[in-house]
Nucleic acid binder design. Structure first.
Lengths: 320, 320
DNA sequence: TTGAAAGCGCTAACAC
DNA sequence: GTGTTAGCGCTTTCAA
């Protein structure tokens, strides 16, 4: 705090320009000078002011990320994987939570843009109402949508083929009567899982709430009073764990009396009793691909938007 | 992008200084001018460059936060609560993961300091080896340790009284023979929970690994072959869920044959079967207090370090 | 390969 | 209350 590149340059007996070039590893600096500068920097305990560098170079080496709910282990794991991908490349992650509210999301995206993040990873919390935030960002910097997406907006996206996952699940269940317990199709996954369920010809019995364990518990109660199907197909693992908990409390045996499935394969899916049958989303792969797309865009290699859908795999456990 | 405060000032017919004052809500600007400036800014689509503002004002309105593992729902919830606290105050959160590695943690803290965060929330992953990172940060900016702490370092801390929690738990169990399944005391919670267990006179049977479900599963297997105690006291919920899962797989009935307890009360603690008896950490309170301490420090109100230990409460469920 | 000098866009003294 | 001006610390022309 206090020692600037001027001090380093003076100490090394070169100009600030040379010091700057040496410190940022540019070529075109004589090796002897390079060494002197590096030594001086170390000796003086020089800590570059990246804010100043950003102002001039117009790049912050920071990537913004907005998630609907960091408390959901699925998103937390995604964040962790993105962080891991960024480790090598000297970029940091500026994280924000939208709390599933498009208004909050818009403000958070704006705050990130104000901070001049180089690029944005967005998990848009709403299929339609996230468009404004996405558009605002996409107009300025490279943006990749992660997991969720905005309907009909031309921007890169990396996620999972939810419909294929749902087909796989229903094929595995091969049940006579199922009920889908999902979330109102406000986000794209809620929508495509519901679509997948319906298109697979599993029938039209659907209960829609939100992606919470509380909703799962409530829905389970309702199913109990209306008559249990052969299988309950849940929109994600969190709902399924709520369903399982309520069934356990009411003394309903799973899978003997009713089978239950989830979606995502969060770490807690396999810990319950019974362990949850679900569809695994490969978060490491999704994160790696998203970061790759972003880097390509930042490097100017790629300019068009790219959509990548990974086919998720069934994880059959005892609940279904 | 392109329109600067000079443009706004010109458009409003005032100087840049007045424009700056009006835009940042300082008093000492005539209302008429204030209105003109705001109108001009809106009209031109002015987006302030906070990087430039930061360079000059030496404040970034950004708070850094380093957590050991964002994938652990306990930490994820803490992050979420901190985010919530920050919402009002126009500060953003720069998040980093240390992966429980002091080396990584040190690098992450340095990256945050390089970005000139105004303050740091640190959950030090190691009782001793996190000291270097903590000291580096504390020398430059206000720092508050959250949940975990570094031994014998004079810095603010907000967390829970782990020993009290452990006493409460053991009092509730009132068991003849217990075994503690915890983590090697590399972080302060692992240490103080172990201490609490021992000091409560619960005996000396301890199995130490790390805070993972895999360790819980392994420890459960070991207990099974060595003879079950009356109760298994786990170092946190994640371990306890692993223990529970393994017992379930091996057909051991909980709590009939053995009781199991956790620590933290993560959202998944109550979802398992049986629901987990545990100690609740009030994350919202911890986050609120930490942010308050930080704000006081940033406002210059408080200069000495402050340690706040919240007494956690027992949540008795069916597992113990 | 190097150095001098001009800003990046803003805020904060300072003068009026 | 307002304007002028001098930087914040760095990178990047532009000349040499």
């Amino acid at each position: 705090m206090g020692v600037t590149i001027h001090d380093v340059a003076a100490h090394a007996g070169v100009s600030v320009a040379t010091a700057s070039r040496a410190l940022s590893g540019q070529r075109g600096v004589r090796q002897a000078n390079r060494d002197k500068v590096v030594a001086a920097a170390r000796e003086l305990g020089y800590e570059p002011n990246v804010v100043a560098a950003s102002l001039r170079s117009r790049t912050t080496h920071t990537i913004g990320m907005v998630v609907p709910r960091i408390g959901n282990p699925f998103f937390a794991t995604l964040v962790e994987e993105v962080e891991k991908q960024l480790q090598g490349g000297n970029r940091s992650l500026l994280l924000a939570n939208s709390d599933y509210q498009p208004e909050v999301e818009r403000r958070q995206v704006q705050a990130l843009l104000d901070r001049r993040v180089d690029a944005l990873l967005l998990i848009p919390c709403h299929r339609e109402r996230s468009e404004e935030a996405l558009a605002a960002a996409a107009a300025r910097i490279p943006v990749v949508q992660l997991d969720l997406r905005v309907d009909g907006f031309d921007a890169s996206w990396v996620g999972v083929d939810n419909e294929a996952g749902m087909r796989e699940l229903l094929g595995h269940l091969d049940a006579r009567r199922t009920v889908f317990v999902g979330a109102e199709p406000t986000d794209s996954s809620a929508q495509s899982r519901l679509d997948g369920y319906r298109r697979a010809g599993a029938g039209d019995e659907v209960l829609l709430g939100d992606f919470s364990k509380e909703w799962g518990e409530k829905a389970a109660g309702r199913l109990l009073s209306e008559g249990l199907p052969e299988a309950v197909v849940c929109g994600n693992d969190v709902i399924a764990l709520g369903v399982l908990a309520e069934f356990a409390r009411r003394g309903v045996r799973v899978p003997q009396e009713v089978r239950v499935t989830g979606f995502d394969d969060i770490p807690y899916a396999e810990l319950g009793q019974p362990a949850l049958t679900t569809i695994r989303q490969p978060q490491a792969e999704i994160a790696a691909e998203a970061v790759r797309v972003l880097h390509d865009r930042l490097a100017g290699v790629e300019t068009t938007s790219r959509r990548t859908a990974i086919t998720p795999a069934l994880v059959a456990r005892s609940s279904g």
